[in-house]
C-alpha cells in the first residue's frame, strides 16, 4: 500500500483521490490556503482519505498529485518536496487562468509542465493525468487486461519517477504510456490530438510519435 498526496481538492484532485482510495492506497489531501470545513470536504468527496498538511505529505507520500489551476501553481510551496515525485495534472486553461504570472516572459517554446518544473526545480516532475476530463476519471478506469482500457501518458525527466507514476496509473485503472522526457509531454496539452480523446495504449503511443494510425 502506497501513500499518495493530493494538492488541490477540486474536481480533478478529488477524482484522482477516489481512484487511489479504491486501489487501496492511503490518501492525504492538502487544503487550499483559504479552505473552510476542509475535513468535511475530504470526508464527503473522498471517503477514506485524510486531510493533511504539506509537510506530512512531503514526509509520507510516494508521489503527490498537483491538481490546482495552472495560474495557482505558484501559490503552492514545494520546498520540502526536494527529489519527491510530483505529478503535474494542470493545464493552461484560458477560461480559468487567463494569462497567469507564470507565463509572463516565459519562453513560448516550453510546455506548461516545463514552466512548472522551472518554478519548482527541486521536484521530480511527471506530467500525467492532465489529458482526460475529471468525469472520465470517475468512469473510464478498468482492470488490467480489460479490452477497452483507457491509456494515460507519463512524461518526465527521471525514468524511475516515470515508472512509479506508471505503476500508480495501472493500479487506478489505466494503461500507462511512458513518453520519456518532460518536454515530450507537450503532445498532451490542450489543442493536441491526445487531449480529451479516449485513446488506448497503441493509439496514444502512435499519436505521441506523430504517426498516422492504421485504419
Amino acid at each position: 500500500m502506497a501513500t499518495i498526496g493530493i494538492i488541490g481538492a477540486g474536481k480533478v484532485g478529488t477524482a484522482i483521490a477516489r481512484l487511489a482510495i479504491a486501489a487501496g492506497d492511503e490518501v492525504l489531501v492538502v487544503a487550499s490556503p483559504g479552505a473552510q470545513y476542509f475535513e468535511q470536504i475530504v470526508a464527503l468527496t473522498v471517503p477514506g482519505a485524510r486531510a493533511a498538511t504539506l509537510g506530512e505529505v512531503a514526509d509520507a507520500a510516494e508521489l503527490t498529485i498537483l491538481a490546482v489551476p495552472f495560474g495557482k501553481v505558484d501559490t503552492v510551496s514545494l520546498n520540502r518536496f526536494n527529489d519527491a515525485i510530483v505529478v503535474d495534472a494542470s493545464n493552461h486553461w484560458e477560461p480559468v487562468d487567463g494569462i497567469p504570472a507564470i507565463l509572463h516572459g516565459a519562453d513560448p517554446g516550453l510546455s506548461s509542465s516545463e514552466l512548472v518544473q522551472r518554478l519548482h526545480p527541486g521536484v521530480r516532475l511527471v506530467k500525467s493525468l492532465n489529458h482526460l476530463g475529471y468525469h472520465d476519471m470517475d468512469t473510464d478506469g478498468a482492470p488490467a487486461g480489460a479490452a477497452n482500457r483507457r491509456a494515460v501518458a507519463v512524461a518526465g525527466d527521471h525514468a524511475a519517477a516515470n515508472s512509479t507514476v506508471a505503476a500508480f496509473l495501472d493500479r487506478i485503472g489505466f494503461d500507462a504510456v511512458d513518453l520519456g522526457a518532460l518536454a515530450a509531454g507537450a503532445v498532451l496539452q490542450p489543442g493536441e490530438q491526445i487531449f480529451g480523446r479516449f485513446v488506448q495504449r497503441e493509439e496514444l503511443a502512435a499519436l505521441a510519435a506523430g504517426r498516422e494510425l492504421a485504419a
Partner: peptide, 13 residues
C-alpha cells in the same frame, strides 16, 4: 458552481 467542493461550502457559509 460547476463542482469544485469549496464552492458548495462557500454557498452554505
Amino acid at each position: 458552481t460547476g463542482g469544485n467542493p469549496s464552492s458548495s461550502v462557500r454557498a452554505g457559509l
